[in-house]
Simulated assay, not measured.
Amino acid sequence: MKLKKIFFLLLFFICVNAFSQLLSSNLEKKTLALGETDHLVIKIENLRSRAVITAPKDELLPFHFEEIKDSIGINANTYERRIEFAVYEEGTFKIPELEFKVGEKLLKTIPYEIEVVNTATKEDQINDIMKNKEVDLEAIDYWELYKWYVFTALAVIALIFVIVMFVKYGKKKKSSPVVTTNQTLKELDSLKKKKYIEEGNYRAFYVELIDISRKFITKQYRIPADVLLTDDLVALMKENNTISQDNEKIVEDVFLRGDLVKFAKTFPDKDLMEKDFTEIRDFVKRSSEDIEFENLRKDV
């Protein structure tokens, strides 16, 4: 009986390994000189023609890692990604767990830590090719050296004067909610024409959609959405009640999803991207109702 149990356990582990995806990663060097190149290789085996979803090319590694080359090789059973990169700052930098979604299964690489050092030393001598020569300068020489600085200073002073006069005496053009709405709708139409949804480029789609939405909220509702974090923005919207609850819910859902996409925590499909685009567009169209209600409330 014991031999049968051992046999069945071995058979179970063999079947699991035969039908599961195997992810491996390899970092060539863990200590680098400034600007020296390194290579990270990630490989997934036993795909069985399943798609691999992860960060787009040249966007897999964190900020400090300058990606020089990002090549991806895919066939029916294997996914291989080779990244050549360099770091141009001294210090210790981390490559976190990198996520790869195969079907419904989420695979993660092991994290790495890289130390970047400056190989130059204080004892290194820098020799001049020629000895410095002293030259006596006259007034005309100083003018030739600094005349462009003088012209630049005068131009800056003139520009400041023009701005002050324009602010003081110029007519201020009032922007109506309708003008802001129409301008934002044009920007959304331009985003739609880029076909990010059709191509499945969810990262670029949400970055531009949220950027357009933040600028719109800032201008239309006088809320500093362009500088606030998502959580702070949601809290402020609920506090001042300028935006209706339905519109608040749309903004909150889309912005939070956009943050997850930005950090590769979720991978939305085309239907969800289309739904978020439509809801933001409808929110922009309905915004004038929020403004009219806010004006009535102030009058009361």
Rank of each mutant, 00 (worst) to 15 (best):
R214N: 04
N127L: 14
D128C: 10
E59M: 08
C15F: 14
S49V: 12
K173L: 14
D299S: 13
I126W: 06
D226H: 11
T218H: 13
E279S: 12
D246R: 10
A264K: 08
S288R: 12
Y79N: 00
K285Q: 08
F65K: 02
I291D: 01
D189H: 10
F65H: 03
V261C: 03
T184E: 06
V87E: 01
E134N: 08
K195L: 11
K270I: 04
K4S: 13
K270T: 09
D276E: 06
K186G: 10
I83T: 10
D271G: 05
D269C: 01
K195H: 12
L256Q: 11
L260M: 12
S244M: 01
E67R: 02
P96I: 11
N132R: 10
I129N: 06
A139H: 07
L23W: 04
D70W: 00
N46K: 10
Q21N: 11
F166N: 09
L188I: 13
L233Q: 10
A139C: 06
V116M: 02
F216Q: 07
D58Y: 15
I14M: 08
V41N: 08
I197R: 06
I129Q: 10
F8S: 03
Y112L: 03
I157N: 00
A18K: 08
D211L: 05
V135Y: 04
K94A: 09
F63V: 15
L106I: 15
R222L: 05
F161C: 12
K275G: 03
E138S: 05
D246K: 09
F100C: 01
V167G: 01
D211F: 06
N132D: 14
K285V: 15
N17A: 12
K173R: 12
L191T: 09
I72Q: 01
Y146N: 08
L233N: 10
S213N: 07
L47H: 01
T54H: 02
I14D: 02
L260W: 01
G103E: 07
S49Q: 14
A153E: 05
I160F: 15
D259S: 01
N295Y: 13
K30P: 00
L233D: 07
R257W: 00
W148R: 04
V150W: 04
F93P: 11
V102D: 01
L256K: 15
K108H: 12
I160Q: 04
T180F: 10
K69T: 13
L185I: 15
L228Q: 02
V207D: 10
T266C: 12
G35P: 09
V300D: 07
I83S: 04
L22E: 13
V135K: 06
T31W: 03
L296W: 07
I280W: 01
A33W: 07
S287N: 05
N75L: 02
D282G: 06
E45T: 15
N26E: 13
L11E: 02
L137I: 12
G103K: 06
I72G: 00
N118A: 02
I74Q: 09
E134W: 04
